[in-house]
Design a protein around this nucleic acid. Structure first.
Lengths: 115, 115
DNA sequence: ACCACTACATAGTAACACTGAGTACACGAA
DNA sequence: TTCGTGTACTCAGTGTTACTATGTAGTGGT
């Protein structure tokens, strides 16, 4: 993966995964697959599992072990109240940053074109 | 500063500073001030200077020492060709990420409202 | 018996922003 | 003259994060 993307994912990947969980509960392997569907093709499995361990330890999710037909039991993660409020904070932070950077982006582009 | 913002700035602060330099050359103290104007009120001076050292070592900027009326000489940073192409790459990475996350954001919100 | 797919776990590494402190120059007030 | 304030840059140490690489294990097909 590009080094820029790696660095940029720091802080945002967590929010991305929480947002996926907000849509519906999911387990690690499934989350990895969903990320790949969404265009994040190069995110390693290990990265996702490590992140899930973190958000579990912080109490942002509830965990349930569910047997699988095709392999070891799944750990299904569900966003709880704390996770929801943390996610809401994430959206605030993201919105602020995206707005500021979007502003810079537009300025840079108009400059390139000599506007 | 919020912990989320700290983590989210990883990888993006560099692009933000390069974008500021793309608009016009500047020195460290000035860049810090400009960041504060743009709403990044809690970015420490030390953070900016460390970042400037990095981008100088990577050859993304040219540096000129200019005497100041009010203090030590200034190190004025100018974005060079390498810096410009690196910045272009940054915008690509950012656009991809912003689009993907924006998509998640809209989905989450429409879900909250039950749409 | 072997392989592919599913599913999770983890030790070690690199990169980055922050904290907190320090150095140094200019200038005006006390 | 000394002190404070604003300007301007530097740096060691810390915490957090995503990546790499590898390992463990269950299921089903050939």
């Amino acid at each position: 993966m590009g080094k820029q993307m790696t660095e940029m994912l720091k802080g945002t990947l967590e929010g991305i995964v929480l947002a996926i969980l907000a849509a519906q509960p999911a387990y690690g392997y499934e989350i990895t697959a969903r990320l790949r569907e969404q265009g994040f093709t190069d995110i390693a499995e290990g990265t996702v599992y490590a992140l899930l361990v973190r958000i579990e330890q912080r109490g942002l999710v509830d965990v349930a072990k569910v047997p699988s037909e095709k392999g070891p039991p799944r750990k299904v993660y569900t966003l709880n109240a704390a996770g929801n409020s943390y996610l809401a904070e994430f959206w605030n932070t993201w919105s602020f940053l995206a707005e500021r950077i979007g502003h810079l982006h537009r300025n840079n582009h108009s400059q390139e074109k000599g506007e």
